[in-house]
Design a protein around this nucleic acid. Structure first.
Lengths: 225, 225
DNA sequence: CGCGTCCTTGAGCTTGGTCAAGGTCTGTGG
DNA sequence: CCACAGACCTTGACCAAGCTCAAGGACGCG
């Protein structure tokens, strides 16, 4: 029923803005393929990627309710994006079960961003990176995009560094480190986790914060698309 | 109408757990006075405070919907807390306007935690601390707890450090720094901002992410209590 | 008064940042 | 098919923000 509302889809090349900061877009976006990111930046060109949006994720629910964006959404890799207008969202909200599903989604997102805060505040950059990879593994597996513990990771090291709050040079070294420890392989935008248990132990990963135990509304959306 | 649902209130001394991790509390909590915090921790006793709850804030909405907590809520100072049962929440959700208000609240919280991520990833610890103080100033002003740019900040330096992802020693030094720069005064749990404009410039603070321009449901709750 | 909690300060060390150069890979045009 | 450009990755040397360990001081409470 939701996909019936998609009005159009669009392709974005890597690096392009999907939704600009401070604007008031009149559509909600759903990522169909590729990686998108929620970007916040400071005046002196420091930038922090504060969330990833993977296939199936809805990415600017908030504008419809809050009125304006305090961040921008950019394509981290080439992306295919579907839209539905905020008037459709209004319609969804008026239906009991869907209002609950929307609330569920935002609460999960909030939980994820708090886990990211823990990650930023307490883990070394090496473990922080490992933790991010574990998270991606589970989120992508939930939408069936992991095969043989391997999945697409098309970001540049600069983008990865901006996600982790470190410099690109340091991101590179930590990546080498994880490779040297035999935890991952990464080449040509394809990430392979060599031993998921080891990687999880290495960074104290516990997938429960992702709330994948229940079928989420977003998974429904994706599977039916 | 909401306050009619409060079933009881309770006092908590500083440091006590209000809601334990991994439990499934059957009540949603609203802070009436004091500071509470959302705490996440790692096995080796590293801890990160990932959110503050100030008077008027609702703090575990998520359990009613998500089913379990992946963090605990602790009293950062002595707190007075009101409860309403999750069955009341169900009731609220069934009413159109309230479902929207709940969604609004969680979206704002999510926006705040993304701003914290920017803070953690990109700002120096000194500016990070200044940014936190600016945020508190606005959030407390919204519930009328700021007088003459001065408000209660009853946390220890250890708690402040855990919020900012630094050590207590370093928190102490950065606090001295802010004092030396003439930006703030802090004694006896009372924080005074000497020049709000200067402090905001110092850390590039922009209050829009707090979405205070509209009256929030949580403010309604507080004012009527 | 004495104890516990919190705050303050110093010295040395480690993680991650900066600057700079060189290497690899891919796509494009001759 | 090769040469070149541009984007990305890699490595090294040095530097600084923030951490650790340790000791002493202030303050409030029984």
């Amino acid at each position: 029923m939701i996909e019936a509302c998609f009005e159009k889809t669009k392709q974005f090349p890597a690096g392009q803005e999907i939704v600009a900061r401070c604007t008031r877009p009149e559509a909600v976006h759903v990522i169909l393929s590729g990686y998108a990111g929620c970007l916040k930046s400071l005046p002196d060109r420091q930038r922090q990627i504060v969330a990833y949006f993977l296939p199936g994720d809805t990415c600017n629910l908030n504008v419809a309710i809050l009125g304006h964006m305090d961040h921008s959404i950019i394509a981290l890799s080439p992306c295919e994006v579907a839209y539905f207008s905020t008037s459709v969202l209004e319609e969804l909200l008026s239906r009991q079960a869907l209002a609950r599903a929307l609330l569920w989604t935002t609460l999960v997102d909030e939980g994820v961003s708090r886990e990211w805060l823990l990650n930023m505040g307490q883990r070394s950059s090496e473990r922080r990176m490992a933790h991010l990879f574990c998270e991606l593994r589970y989120r992508l597996a939930a939408v069936d995009l992991v095969e043989d513990e391997s999945f697409s990771f098309p970001l540049t090291q600069v983008q990865l560094a901006d996600t982790l709050g470190i410099t690109a040079v340091h991101a590179n070294r930590m990546l080498q480190q994880l490779r040297a420890l035999g935890l991952i392989e990464l080449k040509r935008g394809q990430l392979k986790i060599l031993d998921l248990g080891d990687l999880e132990n290495f960074c104290d990963f516990d997938s429960r914060y992702l709330h994948l135990e229940l079928r989420s509304p977003r998974q429904d959306m994706h599977h039916r698309t």
